[in-house]
Amino acid sequence: MNRYIKAMEIGLANEKKGITYFDLLEKLQLELDYSFNSSAEVTFMSWFNENFESHNNVNLNNSDYNEGMNLYLDNKYGVIGEITDPGLKKYYEFFRSFRSKNYFLKGNAAKQYLDYQELQQSVKSSNSARSWAIISIIVALLAIGISAYSVYSSPNPPYDVKIIEDNTRMDELQKENKQLKEELFKAEMIVKVLEEKSN
């Protein structure tokens, strides 16, 4: 998380009582393990001026404010030592007191942070959906592979079976039947001839 997003998160968390510029810097450095240098703080201060407001706003183009800011940065980052000159100390103290007031995150910045949170949630949901889609595709490919393998490795369908009837026994039975009929016919003829003779 970058320092601007984190600053908006801290500002939103302190929306009721506000937070001083110096407390915000300290929290950022602790929570992000980040060390500001002079250039980074100037950039951050410019962003802070656009996204936070105090009930006691001052004209940021005021020469007293700008002189105090330069003295603060030079002192903090070792360009100059302790400020003892009463004329310069007045600007330095003015800047320090101005930045020690409680500031509140502006509505537009709060909305940007909430939009960022929604975007992060959407990205998380999208990544989760993509992971499930990949898993589904892998499962489908495995199912197709298993069914293709089972078709390939299954035995071939049985060959056509031709039934050959053995009519030999049937022919023998028909022959025997024919012989019996002939003998029966002969016996009937003999019986008729004998009856005629006996009459």
Score class of each variant (00 low, 15 high):
residue 77 Y to Q: 02
residue 77 Y to F: 07
residue 77 Y to A: 01
residue 78 G to F: 03
residue 78 G to R: 05
residue 78 G to A: 06
residue 78 G to M: 08
residue 79 V to L: 09
residue 79 V to D: 13
residue 79 V to Q: 10
residue 79 V to P: 02
residue 79 V to W: 00
residue 80 I to S: 07
residue 80 I to K: 11
residue 81 G to I: 03
residue 81 G to L: 07
residue 81 G to S: 07
residue 82 E to G: 10
residue 82 E to F: 13
residue 82 E to C: 11
residue 83 I to F: 06
residue 83 I to N: 09
residue 83 I to W: 06
residue 84 T to I: 15
residue 84 T to P: 03
residue 84 T to S: 13
residue 85 D to H: 13
residue 85 D to Y: 14
residue 86 P to W: 02
residue 86 P to G: 03
residue 86 P to D: 06
residue 86 P to C: 05
residue 87 G to H: 14
residue 87 G to Y: 14
residue 87 G to M: 14
residue 87 G to I: 15
residue 87 G to W: 10
residue 88 L to H: 13
residue 88 L to C: 13
residue 88 L to E: 15
residue 89 K to E: 13
residue 89 K to T: 04
residue 90 K to M: 13
residue 90 K to P: 10
residue 90 K to H: 13
residue 90 K to D: 13
residue 90 K to Y: 13
residue 90 K to L: 10
residue 91 Y to T: 05
residue 91 Y to M: 10
residue 91 Y to K: 12
residue 91 Y to D: 13
residue 92 Y to P: 02
residue 92 Y to W: 03
residue 92 Y to R: 01
residue 92 Y to F: 12
residue 93 E to R: 09
residue 93 E to H: 08
residue 94 F to N: 09
residue 94 F to E: 00
residue 94 F to A: 04
residue 94 F to V: 01
residue 95 F to C: 03
residue 95 F to S: 02
residue 95 F to P: 02
residue 95 F to Y: 13
residue 96 R to G: 00
residue 96 R to V: 14
residue 97 S to P: 01
residue 97 S to T: 05
residue 98 F to H: 11
residue 98 F to S: 03
residue 98 F to P: 01
residue 98 F to V: 00
residue 99 R to Q: 10
residue 99 R to M: 09
residue 100 S to G: 05
residue 100 S to F: 00
residue 100 S to Y: 01
residue 100 S to K: 06
residue 100 S to N: 09
residue 101 K to F: 02
residue 101 K to P: 00
residue 101 K to N: 11
residue 101 K to D: 14
residue 101 K to Y: 03
residue 102 N to R: 07
residue 102 N to G: 00
residue 102 N to Y: 11
residue 103 Y to P: 04
residue 103 Y to Q: 00
residue 103 Y to A: 00
residue 103 Y to F: 15
residue 103 Y to R: 00
residue 103 Y to V: 01
residue 104 F to D: 04
residue 104 F to R: 05
residue 104 F to W: 07
residue 104 F to H: 08
residue 105 L to V: 03
residue 105 L to F: 07
residue 105 L to I: 08
residue 106 K to W: 11
